[in-house]
Nucleic acid binder design. Structure first.
Lengths: 209, 209
DNA sequence: CTTGTAAATGAATGAACGTTCATTTATGAA
DNA sequence: TTCATAAATGAACGTTCATTCATTTACAAG
């Protein structure tokens, strides 16, 4: 059979180095922004000469694309896992999942929202499609809940964006050891979201201590 | 009297050029990001040689600081004007004001949220202080409304951030000529915000067609 | 008209950029 | 142990970067 002859076969050490490149680039991109980070800096973090990076990624742009795409893939896969393991209210499930996932992946989230404009057009299209898939999950929950009268949502797409913007803002200010635990933040935001989409009244609910 | 001898006196043409530098930098920074924009590009937009920019701004960083600081100053001054002209519900006033201001200044908003990390520490501190002043306005509204029982807000600071994140997300997707008018978006978001902070029920309200 | 100086030029600075490549080193399979 | 080749090196490529500066141009005040 015709093997792809352009890509060299990787050894264990190569995969390890590639992984460290991703990790270093993630930190640097999140901290200073893609355009402000040099391949030399990434190489120094990894402990390798700049030229060696090109054994693992064809260009700097490919590192960014790799980071952003795998983040979106992880996000969608993690949602599938979270939803299949639960049978609670889908809206609660989504809100808690979103907050947890985005709090424990602050760097990836930051990059995925800030570096969209540094993606070349074809890469941008790929990432944007994944983002729409994720938004569609919440839109679907809102539409279903609206249809059977549990929610009152005038425009499910707009409400989706409003809720996601609200939730995604959390990692920009949340710090561990602050005066609110992650659990409290989840409860607080869930309560706000529920009230925001409620038809009329909501009985303030709290299930977890 | 001892005049500041370091800063040359400006002529009309100089002020005009400086203004065009700001305008060009605003567009470029918003489109590609501060780090990805060169002084040469800005100079070309203005129709001047790169060296001439330094007659108006000491460094590239100073252009960014100028843009971000004057944006925050405009924002706070515009709020003062908006609130003194109104006597409606302060929360409604804030929500409508925030949406309007941020929709008509999409580029400035984009820069002010995306380029914080490209500010040198002392400049960052200045901008951040202005941002906190603005957030305090909404926090105050929520606290007052909470105190007299009109709202039920568990943590006014967190709720402030949630609401502002929600509203500030609008310019990232809103386009003129979409299926929702700016007026409709205001009503929609105001309704969500009111319900989110309401003690219990809210009678779905609509004043404008 | 003269003159001080703001404004712009044009050329140059050294530094940093992403990327390439011939060469060396290291490693797993035979 | 041999050998193919993955991985890393070290040096260089041409380009672009922000900034500087001596000089020229333009304009408003005297």
């Amino acid at each position: 059979m015709a093997i792809n002859a352009t890509k060299p076969q990787s050894r264990a050490k190569g995969l390890e180095t590639a992984s460290r490149v991703r990790k270093a680039a993630l930190k640097r991109f999140a901290g200073a922004g893609y355009a402000a980070v040099s391949m030399r800096e990434i190489a120094a973090d990894v402990g390798v000469r700049p030229g060696a990076l090109y054994n693992h990624f064809p260009t700097k742009q490919d590192i960014l694309k790799d980071l952003m795409l795998s983040h979106m893939t992880d996000l969608l896969r993690a949602w599938d896992a979270a939803v299949s393991a639960q049978d609670t209210d889908p809206l609660e499930c989504f809100v808690r999942f979103h907050i947890r996932f985005h709090l424990e992946r602050a760097d990836e989230v930051f990059i995925s929202y800030m570096e969209l404009r540094n993606l070349e057009p074809e890469n941008f299209a790929v990432i944007e499609a994944e983002r729409r898939r994720y938004e569609a999950i919440l839109t679907d929950i809102l539409k279903k809940g609206s249809a059977d009268g549990r929610y009152a949502v005038e425009d499910a797409r707009v409400t989706t964006r409003a809720i996601i913007a609200m939730l995604t803002g959390i990692p920009t200010w949340y710090r561990e050891g602050g005066h609110l635990s992650e659990q409290q933040i989840e409860d607080l935001y869930l309560n706000m979201v529920r009230k925001a989409v409620a038809p009329h009244a909501i009985n303030s609910q709290r299930e977890t201590g």
